[in-house]
Design a protein around this nucleic acid. Sequence first.
DNA 1: ACTTCAGATAAGATTTACTTAACTGACCAT
DNA 2: ATGGTCAGTTAAGTAAATCTTATCTGAAGT
Lengths: 311, 311
Amino acid sequence: MPDALPPLTALRAFEAAARHLSFAQAAEELHVTPAALSFQIKSLEEHLGTPVFHRLNRAVALTEAGRALAPGLSDGFDAIRSAWRATRRLQDTRVLTITAGPAFTSKWLSPRLFTFAQAHPEIELRFVASLRIMDFDRDEIDIAIRFGQGTDAGLVSYPLSDEFVTPMMSPALVEKHGTPEGLRNALLLHDDSIAFLRPRVDWPSWMRLAGIECDATHGPRFSQADHALDAAIAGGGVVLGRATLAAAALRDGLLVAPFRLAQTSGAQFRIVHQKGAENRPQLAAFLDWIKSETLGIQDLKARHDIVAPHP
Amino acid sequence: MPDALPPLTALRAFEAAARHLSFAQAAEELHVTPAALSFQIKSLEEHLGTPVFHRLNRAVALTEAGRALAPGLSDGFDAIRSAWRATRRLQDTRVLTITAGPAFTSKWLSPRLFTFAQAHPEIELRFVASLRIMDFDRDEIDIAIRFGQGTDAGLVSYPLSDEFVTPMMSPALVEKHGTPEGLRNALLLHDDSIAFLRPRVDWPSWMRLAGIECDATHGPRFSQADHALDAAIAGGGVVLGRATLAAAALRDGLLVAPFRLAQTSGAQFRIVHQKGAENRPQLAAFLDWIKSETLGIQDLKARHDIVAPHP
DNA sequence: ACTTCAGATAAGATTTACTTAACTGACCAT
DNA sequence: ATGGTCAGTTAAGTAAATCTTATCTGAAGT
């Protein structure tokens, strides 16, 4: 190579100084004295043959050469830092970072999690509850739980359970509203979190399948599934609840699902992780645990006739 | 920052070793002994807490951690190397790299270049003759000469001369083919290098403008303008020559353009360089020179009636 | 005019990086 | 088999870079 790179520490010093436009702040970031940083910059300037900073009285400003050099260096060091962090994360067997939507986190994960925490006290769990699709590398996510009919290219995807919906209500309301006729004058709670699915699996569609004629469009609407379920648990009405999310509440008797008729849309929760990540111990433990936890949903399925509506 | 980067030299050593899959070759690239490289890798592995290479008997292979680390590091160091090279190039006032098409290089630049070389012996010229559009940064180009009707976003562009075409032939052919009637039975040479322009500026179009009725489609076709001109200079026929490229040959009497009628398509050669680059001494010298050289084309223009065909 | 602040410089200490030279195994001839 | 070779490792000493403390400079703010 005709022109070799200057000392890398000098480049890193310059990159930090160019970012802060301050030697003192750059020195602090790199945990060295300002004197050391001054030498680094000077060394770089000797290698380059021209100054990279204009020394103003109480500040520094990039020269033309400095402006040419700084952006590329920042990109380069960013890539290196990111690669290092990602590789460090692979070595870390203690931390497990999971992202899921708020409803799944509060209604499915949280109620079951203590069994996992008991079995694996050595694993530190971190939750990132967001409706946004996270990037495994950029957001340092180990496991994502996603809902829908989509697929995930380049990732390992494992279906958790087919989602289906059926009317649910607090035990106190069963006598009054637990029959087809009783539903007619019930307050219907609408869970809009699955309004994006096609075919629709909402109250009008369920009523039509059940052969019940009534106006099934009014009543409070909730954008998040957990809020709709909480309203039903509180006795606020009858919700067309998502079985996966309501399973814990049904098991604990907080909710009752008195109708056999259930609707599915083909959408499902699925666990997603990067290829090869399943070998890391904390991932393996979590995947084992979540697979065993999903067996319980089978009982629930058996108590309903699950029907797919016509598109 | 919770986990600081390991020594950068160790990262660079690993990056080279991962690229070559050989400590010995990496050591050679970095101009150090294999022993030094072995220590660097070991230091990196201590910082990471896990090996990055499987030591096989006479070879090394990346571990999972190594595979995770290597690509990002390579990207990062590539960016750094590229930024450094680009900045070094800015400091270099001796080398001037020019890209142009093969025809412009051979018919315009080369015949005139010795005057520039004489005036600026301190500047080392490099030519990259390619029809491909080069990238200023990636290909380390200082000046590009491009032809066409396009524009160049984000760059400084300076028109050299409007291109026009008119029949040209060797002096020996003028008596026979230097008249409208004489053209009818001349062998027509076709320069397809400007066949992409609209409106077309080809033999049929010129003949139509000149009011000469004949079959102007047959005859040899050349994909490059300089080859068509060379064929005409050799007495091989009459070419509808591009004035800019033929200017030197016309000046030296190698070609004659006996008709006043010339066609233009609005396309032109233009000089293109990056913003701010005009301050570098070798660029400034070249731009001055090429602007003075283009003045000669004015004489040529005066001897023709330049007509734009209808689209 | 005094203080303060950001950076430069000097001198010396420390750490890092490198080299030479000897070592370990496995592969490959003969 | 057996000795040579090749790729990488290890040891020990050395050279070089990097860092620190302390002092200095010069302009800005009060």
